[in-house]
Each structure stands twice: as C-alpha cells, then as structure tokens.
Design a protein around this nucleic acid. Structure first.
Lengths: 149, 149
DNA sequence: TCGATTCTGTAGCACTGGCTACATTATGCA
DNA sequence: TGCATAATGTAGCCAGTGCTACAGAATCGA
C-alpha cells in the first residue's frame, strides 16, 4: 500500500511482484507447451518426432530445437537418445493433451466471434498461453451458449 | 508446400518461417509496449516517470528497468538524461496510446464474458499482445452488440 | 553545509533462445 | 561395401531480461 497511491490500468491491486517475476519461467513454459504439443502431433502423424521436422515447422535451426529439447529432457517432459527421435514422458503427454485442448478451445472461441480460421489459428497460438482457468471456462460457456441448444 | 504434407494445429498454412522467426522481436515489442504504457500512466498520475517507480510496479530491480529504458531509447521511443526522469517521444506516445486502447478493449471484452475484473486485468496483460487487428475488431463488435442498443 | 539516504547507473553473472561453423553418426544408394 | 548425404550434436557468438554488488549523483534534513 505504498507506491500504489495512484492505481492505473497496470498493477491490478493484488498482483505486484509475483505476477511479473514469473515472466521468464512463463516464457519457458510456453515454449515447453508448444514443443510437447508439436511432438505429440508429429508422433501421431509421422510415427516419430525428429529434430529436423520440428526445426522446419518452427522455422528455426535444428540447433535451437536440440537445445530446447535438452532443457525439456532436464525438466522430465521428453526422453531422447543420441541420434534417435524424441519421445514424451507421461508428464509430457499430459501437458501436450492439456495444451492441445486449450488451443482448440481458443480457436473455436475466436471463430465463434467471426474471426477467420487462419487468424483464429494464428492468434490462438499467442493467446492460449495467457488464458487463465477462469477465462477458459468463460470461453467454453460462450461456445456452449452459441453452439449448443 | 514441402513439409506441410500433414498440417496439424500448428503451422496455420501460410505462416511458416516468418511467423515463428519473429518470436524474439515480438517479445521485445511486448516489453516496449508495456513500458511506454506505464511511462505514460506515471507521467499522467505522478507528473513524471522515474526508474524506481517502474521497478516497483513491474516487480523487478531498477537495473532491469534501466537496461530496458536504454534499449527503448536506442529505438527512439523514450528520451532520458542521466539522473533525470523518463520522457516519451512522439512515437512513444503514439505507441502508448495504442497499447492502452487495446488493453482497455481486451479487459472490457473479458469482463463482458463474465470474467472477474481482477482476472480480466491479469489475463488481458498477456492476451493483448497477441490480438490481431481482426480479432480486436471482433472483440469490439461483440462489445457493441452486448452493450449498445 | 554536510552527511545519510535514496535514486540512478555500471559491471558482471545466469538463463533462454536465436544464429553459424564444424564434428559426428546414420542412412541410403551406387 | 563404401561413400555421399542427411540428420544430429557441440562450440561459441549475440541479444534480451532477470539478478547482486558496487559506484556515483541527487536530495533532504539536522
């Protein structure tokens, strides 16, 4: 209650330090979600997830992919062996499934607002990482109201 | 049209390399928007924008703020003099105004879905940077339909 | 005025995630 | 089989954004 005398649109009262301190780890978490989701997709569609395919899809070099995969392995989301394809751990699969669901909800929601399919996809990739449980639930409610009876 | 044989929820067809290559500069741009918006707010409410106030609001040390301000100065968004407060350039003011508007639209939109005020504020800070012009327009339409006649 | 405190700034470290250049392993085809 | 190519991996660079520790400037009160 000291430097919050004037309270502008930033600093929504309760969230002060905790909220922004997480920036870095949040960013790392976003990357992790995108990666495990892509790995799951590749395994489903290609039978295996290879570094080179991920690099091409992400538009980065294979080096960047390898280093991120190394981090994900440290974090227990994937397993790899030298010169072999990438596998998800149980935790990795869980995260991939959750991420995919969230992604699909956001896309469907944007489309329900009249946003084009292409833009819905594109925007969802950024937005999905910032949608809280409460907001996601609101999206689902909105979809049910529109789509369902 | 080569590695897009299978097209999962990632890679929204046209955006391949360009889309993800921007990640880094996009992140830098997000930070720039948050900073200029906060600087504008501080100038409006306190009369001046000081490093220490920004650091406290952002929940980071003053060092982080100083380094980001240095970058923004390189990019022509702010001007500073040693041991003086921070000023926005014309371009900085333009960006601040645009960012604020976008932020307000996103917050109002989330609230219109029944999301609580606090969560709307919090989620908006993440979401607003990933909302395209088209999606923002859809948000506005939705608000007008709900609020207006 | 001057000394303590506060604010601003610099140096240097860590980590993420871009990159190029080069090394190593697998693979496929002649 | 063996070599060319493709895929994977390592080393080392850069920028951004966190941090602590310390240095320098400004400010405020005794």
């Amino acid at each position: 209650m000291d430097q919050l005398a004037a309270k502008p649109s930033h600093t929504p009262a309760p969230t002060l330090k905790e909220n922004l301190r997480k920036t870095r780890e949040e960013h790392a978490r976003e990357t992790a979600q995108d990666y495990v989701e892509m790995i799951a997709e590749l395994i489903a569609s290609q039978g295996e997830a290879r570094v080179i395919d991920m690099a091409r899809r992400l538009g980065v070099t294979h080096v960047t992919v390898i280093r991120t995969i190394q981090r994900l392995q440290r974090e227990g989301l994937v397993t790899t062996q030298p010169y072999r394809s990438i596998f998800l751990t149980a935790e990795g699969r869980r995260l991939a499934k959750e991420s995919r669901h969230r992604h699909e909800v956001v896309v469907a929601f944007l489309e329900s607002l009249g946003v084009s399919a292409a833009v819905s996809q594109s925007d969802a990739e950024g937005i999905e990482h910032h949608v809280s449980r409460e907001t996601l639930a609101a999206f689902v409610r909105h979809l049910e109201k529109k789509g369902g009876a």
